[in-house]
Design a protein around this nucleic acid. Structure first.
Lengths: 243, 243
DNA sequence: TTATTATTGTAACAATTTGATACAATAATA
DNA sequence: TATTATTGTATCAAATTGTTACAATAATAA
């Protein structure tokens, strides 16, 4: 998991949380031709990590994932998709977390609950990073979007988690697209094609792409048209509400 | 998870296991046109459950899943595929497990670790149930194959877990087929088609099916031929070793 | 030994889908 | 009013998939 930062967590016994279990979230951000991922930076350590946290004793796992994302990043109502559980012993590495805790003036014992082994449930999401602007809560670290094409080194096994999430997203894009709060309320076919090309990492043919998307039945054409370029105005589309 | 039965577990404190985390395995068995699932029966209670158990502090999650399957059912070297984590509060229902423990002469306190909430990681597999014959360990319950078309009521949320596993298997069949220890070492195209039809629940065209399978590149044709029917002998195939 | 039967392997062709190109339409700008 | 860039859609080719057909043949029956 992405190790917690909130002082009350760092100094608590973890008694309110399910022990040994964590959630890590991979939030992909898209805009124009850029794909980014949301990362937390631990001040005074230079360490980068995925937003993560723990599950309360009284909460559903899926609800915990949404809460954790909101607490760490300020992002509300993001539709998260579970994709993998990371449970190898080898991923247990308390060193970076101890550095973070020490940078915050806390000296944990070796048996501190935050330094123990965690199994982590991975969730991913996809948002328009110009529409979903993270506003860190008072107690959370700074967070921001980092270009996926130049991903910096991440804490623990978080780079592998990001890779696995991207592979899942690429395979599931057609089926999961509508669940994500993507693009604007309305968008052009070119917007959508640009999204696909960026996520899949390859160019697509315009005519075939339009046929494919309309064939999926997930968008509906609106009468009103966008204007703004020195060319024929494209139709606008939106995701069909009940699907 | 499928609650444990081994006396040492039932009377221990669970200190050797990751707390609050369990594994449930959905082992689909196929032969001829029948699809079955492997279930444990709790003697003296009539309760049926998926094989399940807990993760040791010193073992990888994936290894735990294989160990649990072997301990509960005697099945060795089954290739398991992680498919979902079940983490809702609503699935916490200590009643049937208490009944099982009492049927074994154990009176647990309400705060016994086995009666607490568990998050469960679901794994599935697919085997030939005439080749994979469960031989229960000395301490495990009886286990056997149950027809999926007439699935009896299962403990807790295990029916939903089976349904989710089947849906995943149907979607992933092409990609995961080769990992499973299926059919015999060699098999005919008709054997494979029968498998597909049974799992997908619909008939397929013979000619198109052959083209599709050969197109996947996961099987290779052998020179020797099967004989045994009053008709032209079919070629035998096997899954390509390194794929 | 030969005919019968039930499948198999593969060809053939139709139907459909996908890939690629072309071109008229048109909103903004020059 | 012409130019420009891009869109909507048509068209045709290529590839894939759906369907039918039929000769080949292993076991069995006659």
């Amino acid at each position: 998991m992405s190790k917690p930062l909130k002082p009350e967590e760092a100094e608590s016994t973890g008694a309110n949380f399910l022990p040994g279990l964590a959630v890590d979230t991979v939030i992909f951000g898209f805009h124009l031709n850029q794909l980014t991922v949301l990362l937390l930076e631990y001040r005074n350590t230079g360490l980068l990590a995925l937003p993560g946290g723990f599950i309360k004793n009284t909460e559903n796992l899926n609800d915990a994932a949404r809460r954790i994302l909101a607490e760490r990043t300020g992002l509300q109502d993001i539709y998260l998709e579970q994709f993998h559980v990371f449970g190898d012993l080898a991923r247990h590495d308390p060193t970076p977390l101890r550095a973070i805790m020490q940078a915050k003036g806390f000296q944990p014992n070796d048996d501190h609950w935050l330094l123990s082994r965690f199994v982590s449930v991975g969730y991913y999401a996809l948002v328009d990073f110009t529409k979903a602007i993270p506003i860190p809560d008072e107690l959370s670290d700074s967070c921001g979007w980092y270009d996926l094409a130049a991903l910096p080194p991440l804490m623990q096994d978080h780079t592998a988690i990001v890779r696995k999430a991207l592979a899942t997203l690429q395979v599931d894009l057609d089926r999961k697209l509508i669940g994500f709060n993507l693009l604007s309320e309305t968008f052009t076919m070119a917007d959508l094609q640009s999204l696909y090309e960026t996520i899949l990492g390859q160019p697509l043919h315009r005519s075939g792409f339009q046929r494919k998307i309309l064939g999926l039945g997930i968008v509906e054409r609106l009468e009103k048209q966008y204007s703004g370029g020195a060319h024929k105005a494209p139709y606008l589309y939106r995701f069909v509400p009940n699907k």
